[in-house]
Computed example of a mutant assay.
Amino acid sequence: MTRGIYIIANDKVTDQAIALLNSIRLHDTDTPIVMIPYDENYHHIADTLKQYYGVQVYEDLEFIDYLSHKLHETFGTQFFARPNQFRKQACWFGPFDEFLYIDTDIVVFEKIIDNLNYLANADFIYCDYQHLGGIKNVFSPQVLEDKVFNENEIQDIFNGGFWGSKKNLISVDDLFASFAESAAHPEYFDFSEKTSDQPIINYMLLKRIPRRFNIVRREGKAPGNWAGSPHFQAENHLLFDPTVNQPLQYLHWAGIRIQPGCPYWEIWDYYRHLNPALPAAVIPTPVKQNQWQKAINSIKNQLRQLKTN
């Protein structure tokens, strides 16, 4: 049985990908990693990640193009903010029998592949507190009103940036059937904040994979991992969650621009520059906000924090 990690990237996220790979390889020099190209502009990052971290490009690029074509054929061109996010679904058909998928706006603090051990008793794993915020950014209340899902089932919604499963557990037919069912009922989904693949993939998970496990429900609970949570404590380039008295497994800047002044910037900056053989990151100067914008962002962060508590 082979285990490995998938990421999705292009040249635009080179610095984020380097930070992620530095953090993975700090704890694990052996696990194979495959990059799924986000678009056609991926050759520079592919060369860098192969040279320094042994990352391979997904072999069947024709299938990825087919997947993208089928998505557009089913939904049209205006349905999603970032339709290329769906390319990550090529994970189901790649070389690994068991796999983790990890977004590039993440850094990890442990040998992250070991989380696949939870697949001994489940078919799909994830690790977040998305469900505590309700169904926002995934479903609309219509899914409950029409009894598409019940209250217990929607407790299993997840963030699509970190998850693991087994090869061919979802077939091509399953994937495209999920597309078709979702396209027929756009009223079931919440795209108000320009999420892309997350609502549809949650729909597929709840409909087609009954043996699922959220790692934060393990015995003794688990730490948070969203960079919008202000209570994590930094020590020796790691983070600690005092609410569960545990170190973080990983940190995810979901919905947050990674730049100087962002939450836990020093953590990201440390991992980005962990490999001295690579040039320093090209970091854009943050756009200055007026007092009104700062007030709005402060309220948004407070609301997000309430959802994660």
Rank of each mutant, 00 (worst) to 15 (best):
I106E: 01
T243Q: 07
F79N: 01
N309R: 12
L169H: 13
P242C: 10
S165G: 15
T308H: 10
N168K: 06
L238F: 03
D241G: 05
N115A: 01
D103N: 10
R257D: 15
F109T: 00
Y42S: 11
V282Q: 15
D156F: 12
Y52I: 00
E219F: 05
K88H: 05
I64D: 00
R304H: 09
F162M: 04
I157M: 07
H131E: 09
I154Q: 06
Y188L: 01
D65N: 14
Q289G: 04
G224A: 11
L67Y: 06
D174Q: 02
E266M: 12
A17P: 10
I5R: 04
A277L: 14
I200C: 02
T285P: 05
Y129D: 13
C262N: 12
L238I: 03
L61V: 06
E145L: 10
P83H: 04
Q155K: 15
T2A: 10
I18Q: 05
N121C: 07
S182I: 03
Y58M: 08
F86Q: 08
P279I: 15
N297A: 10
K12P: 00
I296A: 08
L175Q: 13
D156R: 09
D156I: 01
L175G: 08
N290Q: 10
L239G: 03
C262K: 09
Q78S: 09
P210Q: 15
R272E: 09
I267S: 02
K288P: 15
E145C: 02
I201D: 04
P284M: 14
F191V: 11
L49W: 04
F80L: 08
D11N: 15
A295V: 00
D128W: 03
G76H: 05
R212D: 04
F139P: 06
D128A: 07
D197V: 06
F96W: 03
R3H: 10
E181S: 12
Q259S: 15
E59G: 02
L239Q: 05
E98L: 04
K136D: 14
H27R: 09
C91E: 00
W292L: 06
I135S: 11
D103I: 12
V57P: 02
H273L: 07
G261I: 09
H44M: 05
H72M: 07
Q155H: 08
V216D: 11
N214R: 14
P263D: 10
Q16D: 15
F240S: 02
A254W: 05
T74L: 00
Q56I: 02
E151K: 11
I170K: 02
D103S: 09
F99S: 11
Q198R: 07
A183M: 01
H44P: 00
G261H: 06
H43F: 06
N152W: 04
L20K: 02
I18N: 04
A90V: 05
R218G: 07
S68I: 10
F75Y: 13
G164H: 06
